[in-house]
């Protein structure tokens, strides 16, 4: 039996909104530690890995591990029936064929309840190898979104070059080219606006603009985003949550 209560429906709504274009059907793995989701997009180029830990719920109970097969388009329809500020409760029995989604307004005078039919999903699970990343860049998530948006109209690819001096995003297309360079900076009163670079060696990766921009749907979940890069390896784009994380992996574009 799963029972998870979130004080604000907006967190779950935003998470689902952020991944539903990449992933259609997926299993939500429920354990005593929390809710997790791991799924590749249909073209097998990117991977979504979500963790909502139990301590992020105001009430959480999961006696037995459950895999809830969910169609995210359908879940979105149901989540839109609730307001952002509503208290959200997710409930499923051990052999339930549906997930019960309950909304309660803050005045506690309106309760609504919806049931989402569950599916049997035979999902491939990927083992993500331990990677020694050459660079870790933490920057404002809105800045990352802006760069991806701006470069989207110029090129299908963005190259990220990271050195000690800064991180440079470059794009090259039919109409011309562009680049944005960010230098590490710090501001004690506004840490969310800082750019931080941890580097063991310079690294360069070329990545699909379309996918990077898709990851930016998670911008509203966190003020900061961390990009982890290693040569000829998938990039890790991580949005930390107050209790858990939303991670995206994207395979690089490599020269033949």
């Amino acid at each position: 039996m799963l029972e998870g209560k979130l004080e604000q429906a907006s967190l779950f709504k935003k998470v689902v909104e952020a991944v539903r274009e990449l992933v259609q059907d997926c299993n939500f793995d429920c354990t005593e530690n929390g809710l997790a989701l791991q799924a590749m997009d249909t073209s097998h180029v990117s991977l979504v890995s979500l963790l909502l830990t139990a301590d992020g719920f105001s009430e959480y109970r999961c006696d037995r591990n459950l895999a809830l097969g969910i169609n995210l388009v359908s879940l979105t329809k149901i989540l839109r029936c609730g307001n952002n500020e509503d208290i959200l409760t997710l409930e499923a029995g051990d052999s339930a064929d549906s997930l019960v989604v309950r909304f309660e307004n803050t005045q506690q005078d309106r309760m609504s309840e919806y049931a989402l039919k569950l599916m049997d999903i035979d999902q491939e699970h990927l083992g993500i190898p331990e990677t020694e990343y050459a660079a870790s860049i933490t920057m404002p998530s809105t800045e990352f979104q802006r760069i991806c948006r701006d470069m989207q109209s110029i090129s299908e690819s963005i190259t990220i070059d990271c050195t000690k001096g800064g991180v440079k995003f470059t794009c090259e297309g039919d109409i011309g080219s562009g680049s944005v360079t960010l230098k590490p900076n710090s501001s004690a009163d506004k840490p969310e606006l800082c750019t931080k670079i941890d580097l063991s060696e310079p690294v360069s990766l070329t990545l699909s603009t379309k996918y990077l921009l898709n990851f930016c749907k998670a911008t509203g979940l966190s003020q900061q985003v961390t990009l982890k890069l290693a040569d000829e390896n998938p990039i890790l784009v991580e949005y930390p949550l107050s209790a858990g994380h939303l991670r995206f992996y994207l395979a690089p574009k490599l020269d033949e």
């Binding site: 097998h44 180029v45 990927l126 190898p129 390896n233």
Partner: peptide, 14 residues
Amino acid sequence: TPIQNDLGEFFSMI
């Protein structure tokens, strides 16, 4: 032009 790789080439199925 660089070629988009499949994620399966980096991560193994379990």
